[in-house]
Design a protein around this nucleic acid. Structure first.
Length: 805
RNA sequence: GCUUGCAUGUUGAAAUUGGCAAACAAGACGGACUUAAAAUCCGUUGGAGAAAUCCUUAUAGGUUCAAAUCCUAUUGCAAGCACCA
């Protein structure tokens, strides 16, 4: 029987021998497996963590047995709000809270038997670690990729705290449920948009699941179009718009600008309804982003009286409207509206009785009924009512009009992105201090490298100040410094970095975690190169994964790291749902604690069950009965001992089964199909149980291929059966294809597509012979009456189909 | 609203990528062992039918010698984005 004592016995041995330590530079092929390091919350380890980590755990153990030098590290992403909030509530220093939580996580992880390299543990809140987070920030600053800019932030007046977007969903504060307000503040930004093309094109160099790739592409949101200059009638100014449909320029019937557009301020004296527009602007500003989306169905706007815009191609003048469906933050904050071919413009034009001109027709040239809807399905449209573009396809028309605009200096081809620059600041205590000094005469002055790390001051009071001021602002002794450039009185930047900072490069630190002279040595970086396989959740695909790819590409560009992309392959694990099919949550009281499972059924049971639950990438509900099933299987494996004999009993059947299961498991692990790998091993165990006695040779490889999933049970049995050394150090078994072939195989025969009978054929005969055997079968006569064979299809060693007619 | 996935027994799921649908497990039922229970072991288990056989992968069509798998439409569910010009 498998019980907890076996776990403890082997975990102790692994720990004492430091078995899974990876040595940099070893003369073996390297394999770097990475899991998203956990945030050490007070709630402790979750079964979801266990599932997320188990995928790479199995691969790591397998790769070690295959002779690779495996780096499989663990660490803690420990800066962040929950710890700080808990610290405030309990009046404990976040350092203490963090240390306690890390201790709990470590104990839990070890109790599951993960084969992490415990010598390389990192903690993002350790000054020796965040020294290098700050160093990268200074490099970004040096290269003009970190800058300060005014932007709107979410502020909770009750908690006196600035919240991240994800902490203020639905326009209310996460903690106190009160309304958040938008506040303008000057904050640090990182110019990730400079890397938009590289981040998109880099997706071609890596092996990411299609879903992940698509989400990243959508997030970056590159579009190709044109910037076109429309002249303001009787003025020197032009109104520049961005459009992806320059081909529809003959269909423009009005122009629209965002309420914040500066042209309104410039010409306020000429706009007769300026008051009305100001009013509209105020109303729009009041709406939170949430409301703007909620009210998206109903278009609003105000016509600008006194300004008209000239279409640069037709020379016609069209009216100008202000509307909040145009955003200042995307493109130029102004659009050319083509209601006949854009849903939003169509709705707007309908509501305000604006003309529409159809300029794209479908291939049949049918007229579109513009009373009902816009014609946006333009895949194979033909241009009409468009002078020089008439008769062209949409694609050709786009090229032709862009050439025309460029030749006449009226506009130019232009790429645009969805992605915005990264707001890189939080007004909190528990984060990396930004290593910048604000000097009244030198401006923003970076700290010198030798002055890093800039450590957090040890304070008692880390409650944020009024109006979203960082708690660091209250620490005068820390804030007031001399400018490193001119020596005058200056102040430190009091904002800290957001939680995403530390996780944007941690995978590099694992390569050389104790280095004090660089984020990692050149030797380590060149040896480990990049992460071979990175597993994590879908929720991190558009943030962490993009941010870290950005930092890594930047470090590559400045010659710090040897590869452009940090992760060669990405995989994702599915959610573990509660047994009722809902998400596990504390409030629902349906959370499964991995400790309880380990205690009652053993670590290997938890490991086996979690991998057997279903396809690795899919969500699956927890089942206590399933856990018991996994335990039952492991007990069956333990009891194989009683079947074992020292005599050599050779069995062709067992040979075949054994080599098949080795092949299947070897491949399935690689493809992360753990559920079917375990099913195959269960089948093999069932076959062993059918034997009276089994030679050791038939059990040894089974233990080896099962070892990555159930390391405790297999190590125990390995020792009991007297095999040499430790199983985790043994060589991965090989399979012999020739032993997998049976002498005779059974092939199903279909008649007109339905299986009617089976034939037994020697495995080495060709298609022609199989066809003859199938046709000569007695059973076929029952279906032949009044019919003849029209065709016979033979798929070798799979199926025969005889078509009668 | 748009985009992308997904839909298979009572349940978790398999199906070599177009080739025997339901492997493996859970549950249920029956049997052995036991004073009894647990554990263990052995059977049965998609539906209809006495049987031969027929039906069955959300629904309706289509392509094919052959479809859970490919195509079209519909329905339901999930995720992402959300006035992106």
């Amino acid at each position: 029987m498998y019980d907890k004592k076996i776990d403890e016995k082997w975990q102790k041995i692994w720990e004492e021998k430091n078995c899974f330590h990876a040595v940099t530079g070893e003369d073996k092929k390297k394999f770097y497996a990475l899991i998203e390091f956990p945030y050490p919350s007070g709630a402790g380890l979750h079964v979801g963590h266990a599932r997320a980590f188990m995928g790479m755990e199995v691969l790591s153990r397998k790769k070690r047995m295959e002779g690779y030098n495996v780096l499989f590290p663990i660490g803690f992403d420990a800066f962040g709000l929950p710890t700080e909030n808990y610290a405030m509530k309990t009046n404990t220093h976040p350092r203490v809270v963090t240390d306690n939580n890390i201790a709990t996580f470590t104990k839990q992880l070890k109790s599951i038997g993960f084969s992490f390299d415990w010598d390389r543990v990192i903690d993002t809140t350790d000054p020796n670690y965040y020294k290098w987070t700050q160093w990268i920030f200074l490099k970004l600053f040096e290269h003009g990729l970190a800058y300060k800019d005014k932007t709107y932030v979410n502020y909770c007046p009750k908690c006196r705290v600035i919240l991240a977007n994800e902490e203020s969903q639905g326009g209310v504060c996460d903690r106190c449920d009160s309304e958040i307000v938008q506040m303008e503040k000057e904050v640090w930004m990182l110019k990730i948009t400079d890397y938009a093309d590289k981040l998109l094109d880099g997706l071609g160099e890596v092996n990411f699941p299609p879903r992940v790739r698509l989400e990243q592409e959508n997030w970056i949101g590159r579009s190709y179009g044109a910037e076109i200059n429309f002249k303001v009638n009787n003025k020197e100014d032009v109104l520049t718009v961005y459009t992806t449909r320059p081909d529809t320029i003959y269909g423009v019937t009005y122009m629209a600008i965002a309420p914040e557009h500066p042209i309104l301020d410039k010409y306020k004296d000429e706009i007769s309804n300026y008051d009305e527009i100001l009013n509209y602007r105020k109303e729009a500003a009041k709406k939170t982003e949430f409301e703007r989306v909620e009210l998206a169905k109903d278009k609003t706007g105000v016509k600008v009286e006194g300004l008209e815009i000239v279409n640069p191609v037709t020379g016609d003048t069209v009216p100008l409207w202000v509307t909040d469906y145009v955003m200042m933050g995307y493109g130029t904050g102004a659009i050319m509206a083509v209601p006949a071919h854009d849903t939003r413009d169509f709705e707007f034009a309908k509501k305000f009785n604006i003309d529409m001109i159809q300029v794209v027709a479908n291939k049949q040239g049918d007229k579109v009924d513009l009373d009902k809807e816009a014609y946006t399905d333009i895949e194979d449209g033909i241009l009409v009512n468009s002078d020089i573009l008439n008769g062209l396809s949409v694609a050709d028309a786009k090229n032709k009009i862009i050439d025309y605009l460029e030749d006449n200096k009226l506009g130019k081809a232009k790429k645009n992105y969805h992605m915005k620059d990264w707001a890189f600041a939080r007004q909190r205590y528990w984060g990396e201090p930004v290593p910048i000094i604000k000097c009244p005469c030198c401006g923003l002055v970076p700290l010198k490298e030798e002055d890093l790390p800039l450590e957090l001051p040890d304070v008692k009071d880390f409650v944020p100040g009024e109006d979203g001021e960082s708690p660091l602002a209250k620490v005068d002794s820390w804030v007031n410094v001399k400018c490193p450039k001119c020596g005058m009185d200056a102040k430190r930047e009091t904002d800290t970095m957001p939680q995403w900072a530390g996780s944007s490069w941690y995978f590099l630190r694992y390569m050389d975690p104790k280095n004090n002279d660089a984020l990692a040595s050149k030797e380590a970086l060149n040896y480990w190169q990049q992460v071979d396989c990175y597993n994590g959740g879908m929720e991190h695909v558009t943030r962490h994964l993009i941010y870290s790819r950005f930092w890594h590409r930047f470090l590559y560009d400045i010659g710090v790291v040897p590869t452009a992309e940090p992760y060669a392959r990405r995989s994702t694990q599915g959610l573990i749902l509660a047994s009722d099919g809902n998400k596990m949550s504390k409030s629902k009281g349906n959370v499964v604690n991995p400790d309880d499972i380990v205690k009652e059924y053993g670590a290997d049971t938890l490991r086996t069950y979690i991998l057997f639950i279903g396809e690795y990438g899919m969500a699956a509900p927890w089942s206590e009965n399933g856990v018991k099933g996994a335990k039952k299987f492991l007990d069956r494996v333990m009891r194989i001992e009683s079947l074992i004999t020292d005599e050599k009993i050779e069995s062709k059947e067992l040979d075949r089964e054994l080599h098949c299961v080795i092949k299947k498991v070897t491949q399935d692990y690689e493809d992360m199909k753990y559920n079917t790998a375990i099913a195959a091993m269960m089948s093999y165990v069932n076959v062993l149980y059918k034997q009276e006695k089994v030679s050791k040779e038939y059990v040894k490889p089974l233990l080896q291929i099962l070892n990555p999933v159930a390391p405790h049970v297999t190590e125990e049995l390995w020792e009991k059966l007297g095999f040499e050394g430790y199983i985790f150090e043994s060589k991965w078994p090989e399979y012999d294809e020739s032993k997998m072939i049976a002498d005779e195989i059974e092939i199903p025969v279909q008649v007109n597509g339905t299986v009617r009978y089976r034939i037994s054929v020697p495995s080495n005969v060709d298609e022609k012979a199989i066809e003859e055997i199938a046709k000569s079968a007695e059973a076929l006569k029952n279906y032949m009456t009044g019919k003849e064979i029209k065709k016979v299809i033979v798929i070798k060693s799979k199926i025969v189909n005889i078509v009668l007619g």
